[in-house]
């Protein structure tokens, strides 16, 4: 089918999978924020998620499919783009593009590395900082997160990853609406601004947890 091969079709698939992942990012942030309620909040939330049983696996496989479709087409399209634009100008003048829009492939690659690390860390619990929590499903999530983020280096890496996510979505959210054709010349600037604000909200929201733990506010 041409949808899977053409210049526009592949971008539509990337846009849809990308946006489904943004929905996940929103829900995940709301879930994480239950840590501010205290141990009972996030532990009860984790308990509730795990009680969904096979649905958890349906969800995980769907997310894996979204990541794969988004990443494979992203890499393919980026390679084609650099072939199409092999000779560069001596003077590089930027009119509208910005650091975020130009580095989507690299922020994307970094995010995949982060996702693998993040799952090994808090889901599989194979990293030494959370060794005490390995094998408990889901167990004391509050204890695991606070123990882990009390380490400044782990907290720092996490915040940097959230900065990368923010950069990716700084361009990505408005890009979704353009690729789906769900905008006009009047709505595009508004959608761009809302998308950028949302990207910053994710950065602040996600980063607040390790920072609050480091500051000793959550303990």
């Amino acid at each position: 089918m041409q949808l899977f091969k053409s210049a526009v079709g592949r971008k539509i698939l990337m846009a849809i999978t990308g946006q489904l992942m943004v929905l996940f990012v929103i829900v995940h942030l709301l879930g994480n924020s239950s840590i501010f309620i205290g141990p009972n909040g996030i532990n009860a939330y984790a308990e509730h998620l795990h009680s969904l049983g096979p649905l958890v696996w349906v969800f995980r496989l769907a997310m894996l499919a979204f990541v794969l479709v988004h990443a494979i087409y992203g890499i393919q399209v980026s390679i084609e783009n650099s072939t199409a634009n092999s000779a560069k100008y001596a003077i590089n003048t930027k009119l509208k593009r910005n650091f975020a829009s130009e580095n989507m492939i690299w922020t994307g690659v970094l995010l995949i590395i982060f996702i693998i690390g993040h799952i090994s860390h808090f889901t599989l619990r194979i990293t030494p900082d959370v060794a005490a929590f390995a094998g408990q499903v889901p167990g004391n999530v509050f204890g695991m997160v606070t123990t882990s983020f009390s380490n400044g280096i782990i907290a720092f890496v996490y915040v940097v990853a959230m900065l990368v996510l923010c950069l990716h979505l700084f361009h990505g959210i408005q890009s979704f609406f353009q690729t789906m054709g769900w905008n006009s010349d009047k709505s595009l600037p508004v959608i761009s601004q809302v998308g950028r604000v949302l990207a910053v909200v994710f950065l602040v929201g996600y980063s607040s947890i390790p920072l609050f733990i480091l500051a000793g506010i959550i303990k």
């Binding site: 041409q2 053409s6 210049a7 526009v8 592949r10 971008k11 399209v77 084609e80 783009n81 072939t83 199409a84 634009n85 930027k94 009119l95 509208k96 593009r97 829009s101 130009e102 989507m104 361009h171 408005q174 890009s175 353009q178 690729t179």
Partner: peptide, 19 residues
């Protein structure tokens, strides 16, 4: 859209440099 790709043009990534 197919002709565009066959001619060797890249894929739009919504930078809006063109406009």
């Amino acid at each position: 859209v197919d002709a565009m790709k066959e001619c060797g043009f890249g894929n739009c990534s919504n930078h809006y440099e063109c406009q």
